[in-house]
Design a protein around this nucleic acid. Structure first.
Lengths: 186, 186
DNA sequence: TAAACTATTGACTGATTAGTCAGTTTCTCT
DNA sequence: AGAGAAACTGACTAATCAGTCAATAGTTTA
């Protein structure tokens, strides 16, 4: 692993544990086993490091989840696949999960930045299709997207807190029905 | 307003704008128009100040919302009243809203602390009643509570971002149907 | 080979900040 | 009144931390 990647990796671990402000750059470098100076060689400021990490996570989530949606799937199947993939990704990458959670409530976060990402754009397209076809409630697409994201986050936090994994298919479906009922027209 | 209250008030404003770590205690005192020392007279550490603020907000939310639930109400009516009250409270007290949001993703937050609060306990009682009576889905009460809270937060953020208020009754009901469908058995 | 560039180090600095403290004023109770 | 407590002040400190920099090593290019 090169030093740049090693730094991102170590930073994510420390940030998810102690927060952005509880983690000194010097500590990141130390625990990554590199010099203090090299951190600022790759990331001129702490802000740049943090934003690079955000895009790193979103890119990987996109690759992981969108690849699982197969072409001929119905809308409900596609949403299910994306929902499940997001939960799995967050459970398997808990440092990423904690990092994103903190990022999104920090002053670093701006809504416009997120909008530019493929992951959000694809999700919004899917939701707009659902609204146009009359399968979804008449609610602004952005609000539906945010509700879904919030449900994923809540579910992951709940599973983590209770040391659970999604191995029970029946329970998993029951959880998805919660999400689906939120969006779908009765 | 006495100095202690004035400090909590100013701190909430600054925290919601610049975050816990972006706000120096000296700045809080200065903007509150009091001396630096008096802050530490009332709150021995910054932690104590932050936790005092958390309970201040939850107490006021409890008083505001629970008072509106009337005795003979059905379960759906009670949930609606609590949901709407929470949204109104957060819209009217945006500094409180931003503060809580940051608090809950900060290292200060511990899940056990929240459980002790009347507001959470009352909500859980109501949800458990819904599950037992078969009106709610067979999902752990805590997860239902967290989902509802997340929906409230998402909705408030959406309304804020688009400079909206809940003046359209039809739209308000449509938003509540989203929440209700999340919880209710079909 | 020499020049130019990139990667790397770690000691250092200037700014910031939570919390202290010695002393002053204001309140309270007898 | 006057003693004792509580409220209050603001200058001060010890620690922390993001970012700098001069120097060295390694790699590419002409």
């Amino acid at each position: 692993m090169d030093k740049r990647t090693k730094l991102i990796h170590t930073a994510k671990q420390l940030f998810s544990e102690h927060g952005f402000y509880g983690t000194a750059t010097a500590r990141i470098a130390k625990e990554a086993g590199v010099s203090n100076g090299i951190l600022f060689h790759y990331f001129p400021t702490k802000d740049v490091l943090i934003k690079a990490m955000f895009f790193d996570v979103k890119d990987r989530l996109f690759d992981y989840s969108v690849g699982q949606v197969y072409k001929g799937a119905t809308l409900k199947e596609s949403i299910y696949t994306l929902w499940l993939a997001a939960i799995e990704f967050n459970l398997e990458n808990q440092n990423d999960f904690e990092f994103i959670r903190q990022f999104e409530t920090s002053p670093y976060y701006r809504a416009e930045t997120e909008l530019e990402h493929r992951y959000v754009q694809l999700s919004l397209e899917l939701i707009n299709k659902g609204i146009e076809e009359g399968q979804f409630k008449q609610i602004p697409a952005m609000l539906i997207f945010k509700s879904m994201s919030a449900q994923v986050e809540t579910t992951v936090r709940f599973l983590k807190m209770n040391n659970m994994v999604l191995d029970d298919v029946e329970f998993t479906h029951r959880l998805f029905e919660m999400v689906w009922d939120t969006l779908a027209k009765k």
